[in-house]
């Protein structure tokens, strides 16, 4: 299992690197799709079918949105050599990555090894969750019953985002 997920992750990393460096914005967007759909396969391998279903729908919608934006604006990203600010940015990025890697090294020491995590909190959700919520699917039980207010907040965020998109796209530019 670990080997299969690692292989797909390597493909996702390659897709992400190409998406960042592609000259044509349309191919960059399509390579972003590699990352998203690779994630779907990873979710299926990790026994998370609910996540896979949601992710495949969301990835398709966001890909359509990005392609629409790219086709409506410009496809080319003119290539320019990095100027002074560019080198500062690259140095900042590498420095930040180094600092974060250092903290990852500290953090992995206290983490469970892959696949051997203990169900500390989920035990109480799993035992008797079906009887309490009436849902055979534990993820649905957690999302809509134990954490119902969380889901209400999520729906609020979604509605706010839709209202925001409508507002932004409808306004006319002031002269």
């Amino acid at each position: 299992m670990e080997a299969a997920v690692s292989l797909i992750l390597v493909f996702m990393i390659l897709g992400a690197v190409f998406a960042i460096h592609a000259r044509d914005l349309l191919s960059a967007v399509i390579s972003c799709g590699i990352v998203g759909y690779g994630l779907v396969i990873c979710f299926l391998l990790l026994k998370a079918p609910d996540l896979a279903i949601v992710q495949i729908v969301v990835e398709t919608i966001s890909l359509v949105l990005m392609v629409a934006v790219v086709l409506d604006s410009t496809r080319q990203e003119p290539f320019t050599l990095p100027d002074k600010q560019g080198y500062v940015n690259i140095a900042t990025a590498v420095l930040t990555a180094g600092v974060i890697l250092y903290f990852l090294n500290l953090a992995t020491g206290s983490m469970d090894a892959f696949g051997e995590g203990s169900l500390r909190m989920a035990e109480h959700y799993i035992n008797g969750a079906a009887a309490k919520t009436g849902s055979a699917n534990l993820v649905t039980g957690v999302v809509f019953d134990f954490r119902g207010y969380d889901t209400l907040g999520e729906a609020t965020v979604l509605v706010t985002a839709v209202l925001g998109v409508i507002t932004i796209l409808r306004i006319r530019g002031k002269k």
Partner: peptide, 27 residues
């Protein structure tokens, strides 16, 4: 069973990620 709690959290986060992407794209 695998742990259902992180899956429920990620389910919420995926949908919010779509909302932010749509917002950024319209901007």
């Amino acid at each position: 069973y695998v742990d259902p709690l992180p899956q429920a959290m990620v389910l919420t986060a995926i949908v919010i990620g779509l909302a932010t992407t749509a917002m950024l794209m319209s901007v």
